[in-house]
Amino acid sequence: MRHPFRIALFAVAFAAAALGIARPAAAAQTAPEFDGIEAWQNSKPLTMKQLRGKVVLIDFWTYSCINCLRTLPHVTRWYDQYKDKGLVVIGVHSPEFPFEKQEANVREAIARYHITYPVAQDNDLATWDAWDNKYWPAEYLVDQRGNVVAHHYGEGNYAEMENAIRTLLGLPRLADGKAEMDKDAPDFAQLGSPEMYFGSDRSENNASPEGARTGTRDFTAPSRLDLNRFALVGRWEIGRENASLVGASGEIRLHFKAKKVHMVASANDPVTLEVLVDGKPQAPVTVQKSMLYTLFDGDGYKDHVLTIKVPKANFHAFTFTFG
């Protein structure tokens, strides 16, 4: 379990990850070794010492993080395009939630997102700490001598990172018109909602008058739900990481400003959610596996009220994220 300082730091990190922060390393720094890796996927165990002579891209990610998932297509493309020219990509999977530590869940995510490069399961965040990392996603570029020469926090700046990779590989830089643009990223200037957590450890957006402290009780929604607030309706148990429906049925109501709404959720048995936006029915969403689900995909960054109707108990909500 992470101590309170780290929890607060990670909450700040998600905001920074959405914006994207990139810069070259201030001075040559020897890349730290992988530490405390629980398991390796797509590879036998590797060390940075073994990889001397290669250009190495380290990608810190976790499979329920929407910022990481929007970055993955770029990372996987770089691997496919440059692996035969001397690039090694290592995904360091550093979990946020306990279910992300389960090897079967990680293997399934690797298959779902077509990741073929090595992935190290950093379940206790030992490698995260060794690299003094603070964000999901984060990329670190290591040269053939084992020095960290550039790093990038968050989404975006894909052209800059690709050109840095090409330079180390002895390839010409891509012209501006040919460099990959970040076509799928949200417009963060218009996105009006932050990530929201259901668990008591990081709950800041729960508007139910019964409060966000741990425990089981009956919840109600206020008559008016302010922007960037959500409310539970029905009997729920609040844990440190999530909210679990214990009543026969329940609801979640959310006031947001975004183009897309995602939820990290799971259920003991498959449960089909009824989703309404401004009272209008949307496509139902069936939840069981512990992962990120898309609840709404709109046509602009607009102010909406979303209602989720949950028809049975043992549904677990972790976070809302937006795009």
Rank of each mutant, 00 (worst) to 15 (best):
L69V: 11
T116F: 02
E274D: 14
N157C: 11
N157A: 15
I252Y: 01
D299I: 06
P73I: 08
Q81A: 09
N157E: 06
S208Q: 13
L51I: 06
E162Q: 08
D269Y: 13
T220L: 06
F34W: 05
H93A: 05
A27N: 09
Y293T: 03
A16M: 08
T294P: 03
F256D: 04
Y197V: 01
W131E: 09
A185C: 05
D84V: 00
F60G: 01
A111R: 15
D35W: 00
I110T: 01
L169S: 04
K289V: 01
Y301S: 05
P137S: 15
H262F: 14
Q29K: 09
T319A: 14
L232T: 02
S193L: 10
K302H: 13
G250D: 07
W78S: 12
P95G: 13
F60S: 04
G234P: 00
V261Y: 07
G211C: 07
K302T: 10
V12P: 00
Y197E: 06
T216H: 08
V142K: 02
K134L: 02
M263F: 00
S203R: 13
W236R: 06
R217M: 13
G170Q: 09
E204S: 11
Q282R: 11
D59F: 03
A16Q: 15
L245V: 01
R112A: 10
E103C: 00
W40H: 06
A283C: 05
L9R: 14
